[in-house]
């Protein structure tokens, strides 16, 4: 960068460009606040509202724990199925899309699919699928499968593009068919990272399944939204606490699974 020489002379002074950028961001923030019609009285009124809101949330009510459990189990099922099928579909797409293994007629359609899957938020995809297959868990699974293809597919594709081609060359030189080259040359090199992506995706899908439920695609999100509409804010808080606890637990579990696989292979 051209400004590199200035900080070297005065290490703790920010450059003129950085100052201008900060000024610009500040000016933009003021402009945007005006555009969005934010006003102090509204904010204060909101805080006031919020206090009443919090008051109605406490203490959390686990009275309807059976609804909570049903919703959670469904969310879990959605997450498991979405991860399983998402990863299953991602594998061939990632291999087709890897530019070091495939010619361009195969890579660009595969890359287009992954980009499309990534572009839309799972909630939007869920709305579309609800129109197609009706309300319920199926729409949620399908939406999250697409999201998983977008995420795992992209990372896996990048992982394959980073493998050592020397090992592939050696397997090719034995006259192995392509599928065997994948089994013995490609997969051993990327398996460890793939396991990491899968556990992360399961975690992400569990979080996202709360989200797609809000628009009607099943799971705990649906329970949450229903509680909201009935103004049962104490139950809402109970659900939120459970979600946070489960996500934390999931994170610990993911670390544990990662350790099993890293220790093994």
């Amino acid at each position: 960068m051209s400004s590199a020489s200035i900080p070297a002379a005065r290490p703790f002074e920010s450059s003129l460009g950085a100052k201008l950028l900060a000024l610009f961001i500040l000016a933009y923030a003021c402009y945007a606040l005006g555009q969005l019609d934010f006003s102090w009285p509204r904010f204060v009124k909101g805080i006031d509202n919020g206090a009443r809101f919090l008051d109605r949330m406490f203490p959390p009510s686990f009275k309807n724990w059976d609804q909570l459990l049903t919703g959670f189990i469904e969310s879990m099922q959605i997450a498991v199925l979405a991860t399983f099928f998402g990863v299953l579909i991602s594998l061939p797409i990632a291999i087709l899309g890897a530019r070091n293994l495939m010619p361009s007629w195969a890579t660009w359609p595969a890359r287009l699919i992954v980009t499309l899957c990534r572009a839309f938020n799972p909630v939007i995809v869920a709305i579309i699928f609800i129109k197609a297959v009706g309300f319920g868990a199926l729409a949620g699974v399908l939406a999250l499968v697409m999201g998983s293809i977008g995420f795992v597919g992209k990372l896996f594709m990048e992982a394959i593009e980073e493998i050592s081609m020397k090992q592939i060359e050696a397997i090719r030189a034995t006259g192995a068919p392509f599928a065997s080259v994948v089994a013995f040359g490609v997969l051993p090199q990327v398996m460890g990272r793939l396991v990491g992506f899968c556990t992360y995706q399961l975690d992400a899908n569990l979080r996202n399944s709360t989200m797609v439920g809000i628009v009607g695609a099943g799971g705990i999100g649906g329970t949450l939204f229903a509680a909201f509409q009935r103004f049962e804010y104490d139950f809402v808080l109970a659900i939120l606490i459970t979600i946070i606890a489960v996500v934390l637990l999931g994170e610990l579990l993911a670390n544990y699974v990662k350790r099993i696989f890293n220790g093994e292979s």
Partner: peptide, 27 residues
């Protein structure tokens, strides 16, 4: 050498037979 680093020595040797083996059996 171009061995598949993460496979065992035995699996690396067996790679030499992949040309004779159906992909399904290889998997």
């Amino acid at each position: 050498y171009n061995l598949v680093e993460r496979l065992s020595v035995m699996e690396n040797l067996l790679c030499g037979r992949l040309g004779y083996l159906s992909p399904l059996k290889a998997w």
